[in-house]
Nucleic acid binder design. Structure first.
Lengths: 354, 354
DNA sequence: CGGGTCCATTGAACCGGTCTAGTTCGGGCT
DNA sequence: AGCCCGAACTAGACCGGTTCAATGGACCCG
């Protein structure tokens, strides 16, 4: 509320409320603006006494440094581009944490939203046009070649997916994550455990192979049902399963949405979850946490992933790291109420399973 | 790409890949950089011939204008601050559209995420620190006084809520929206229609009064059940309703989440939706669209609201509008499968469901 | 042929910082 | 006294655009 000051000062009607600059402070204190700059940049040079006076006057005048000027002089923008499909609640959550983390380091996030009409390539171009100094790509499906070319222009962090080349990677061990789910349901006595796949993407493939490996480890046969990450796929998968002579006792879905579609369709035909069939999702999205669903899922630690991604950017930009880094976090199983012990009734038909 | 050019030029090992500037173009064409500037700003002055040559050379050199420099010169930032609670899927969707709309007008969006630890006040401060030229506040609960003070510093657009003062407002007519839902269920033959309220906020109040008015219009008694915007509230409301001697035949919830909690609990005790009770939500969120839910809801036209909000900002910033504007869009009822005709059976008393 | 107009174009200041190559000055050492 | 040194501070060139008064030349008129 110092508006009054601004409005009244400088008699003339124009009242152009010019912002306070370093020169103003310098004039008032009786030093050069270079010195004022040094004080604000906290570099060695100015005496303690001068430093104090400058800061006092700056405060008094209500000085706010002009980022634009500083960044232009440094030939920098302090902008980090984040590409995300914000409709995905997981991405939205990540974006929130990324913004916070970037802010802490004095960086600003420019959001590039991927939509059906605005593909990944276009979004990346836009972000580069804004002169972002680094890119954080959430769940990108861009090819290795494209990513590598990109990485030569600007530091790139890929979140969620395994990639080679000179990009940094932050992800959770999807294979292991699904593995813990398999362990969990096996521990509950299940033997016929199906996996509702997420389709062709890298992430889906990781989850699928994690499932296959874990099943093998337990000496069980893998049973993959094709699908994708939508609830529609879950519905279809349910129908496909119901058409079989024998239902699996547990289904591990590739994500929460498809798990929900699956559950709904199974319930519709009168099956109880988890008494008749146990179902798990993946992502631990707000959907999974919804009280009425209470879906067993796997948490991907968005907050931690966001922090690591921003750290990776800072290391490259401000600390000169050049070799690529890969950070793999451990996902966490969240057991809720859609998975339960295999019940006696379904145990019957199960004959010669080793 | 053209990296090679950059790398090879300027013999020395340093190979600082300096970006192409207007001066470079000017030198090459043999004119002054002032003229080049004029060409790019599309102002009258340069001859058609010169214009053409400049553009050719610019293209050849791969020139990209430097926003930072331009904005600094203009003493502008072209930044629009958007405050949102990105966990809300409605907000997330809005943000996506806002980013796209701002981009079209050459503005950039800085996202300020409201979280439990980072309240509205702090977010606004941060956005101002980034020298945003305007603020778009999604679903803010800031008081009129605060908003007015803010509006004196910078154009402010409040989205979703009715406010006075000198801020611009973009919203849908919540009252009318709920009204159309009432009309819809009344048209289906319902008479005992309850409203699951969204709590104390301005938005909830608007929806509540819209319900009350519409009921009165139809000569029916209003029946408001307290709640908030969470699914937990829906669950509790369901329990409260079930404890009554007679259930309403239709419940109009203040948003989708609470509607879902309500539906789930009603289904859990064996009631069918919509045969026994019709239920509607509000927001037309992805949740409502989920195939298995297929919730009758009200669409708030996020894309249109986003476009209008950005328009309002542009008008103030670039077209000098000073009087405040209020844009009210008409929300759209989306009928799905959770509302249906009132059935004969519910007329009689229900058997003892605990 | 001198003078006035109009158009395309230009030089230089400016935006608000950062940064480099100094300058000043007090004091310790020889 | 003469010299050197480092700490404290400064002048002025930058960064890459925008802006505006000023210039030069073509053209027209009396």
């Amino acid at each position: 509320m110092q508006r009054d000051d601004d409005a009244r000062s400088d008699g003339p009607a124009q009242a152009a409320k010019r912002a306070v600059t370093m020169q103003d402070i310098a004039d008032r204190v009786g030093v050069s603006k270079a010195l004022v700059s040094m004080v604000f940049r906290r570099v060695a040079g100015p005496s303690a006494e001068t430093r104090k006076r400058v800061l006092e006057v700056a405060d008094e005048l209500g000085y706010r440094p002009n980022r634009t000027a500083a960044l232009m002089s440094l030939r920098r923008t302090h902008l980090v581009g984040v590409m995300a499909d914000i409709r995905s609640s997981f991405h939205a959550e990540m974006v929130e944490y990324l913004v916070a983390a970037a802010d802490e380091h004095g960086y600003e996030v420019v959001l590039g939203a991927v939509t059906p009409t605005h593909g990944e390539g276009k979004v990346v171009e836009t972000l580069l046009d804004f002169r972002c100094e680094a890119l954080i790509l959430l769940g990108t499906e861009l090819g290795t070649g494209v990513l590598d070319a990109l990485a030569e222009r600007v530091p790139v962090v890929v979140v969620g997916r395994r990639v080679g080349g000179n990009v940094d990677v932050v992800r959770t061990a999807d294979g292991k994550g699904i593995g813990t789910v398999v362990d969990h349901v096996v521990g509950l006595g299940h033997r016929r455990i199906a996996h509702l796949s997420g389709g062709d993407g890298t992430i889906a493939a990781d989850r699928r192979s994690g499932y296959t490996r874990a099943m093998r480890r337990h000496g069980l046969d893998a049973d993959v049902v094709d699908g994708d990450f939508t609830d529609g796929a879950g519905t279809e998968a349910a129908r496909a399963l119901l058409a079989r002579p024998q239902l699996p006792t547990a289904v591990i879905a590739a994500n929460d949405r498809s798990a929900i579609g699956l559950i709904t369709e199974l319930r519709r035909v009168g099956l109880r979850i988890p008494e008749d069939v146990s179902v798990s999702g993946y992502d631990d999205s707000t959907l999974a946490q919804l009280a009425h669903l209470d879906l067993t899922s796997v948490n991907q630690q968005p907050r931690e992933q966001a922090a690591k991604a921003v750290d990776a950017v800072i290391e490259r930009l401000d600390q000169g790291r050049t070799e690529s880094a890969s950070i793999v976090l451990r996902p966490q199983l969240v057991v809720r109420r859609t998975t339960g012990p295999v019940s006696a009734s379904v145990a019957g038909p199960r004959s010669g399973v080793s």
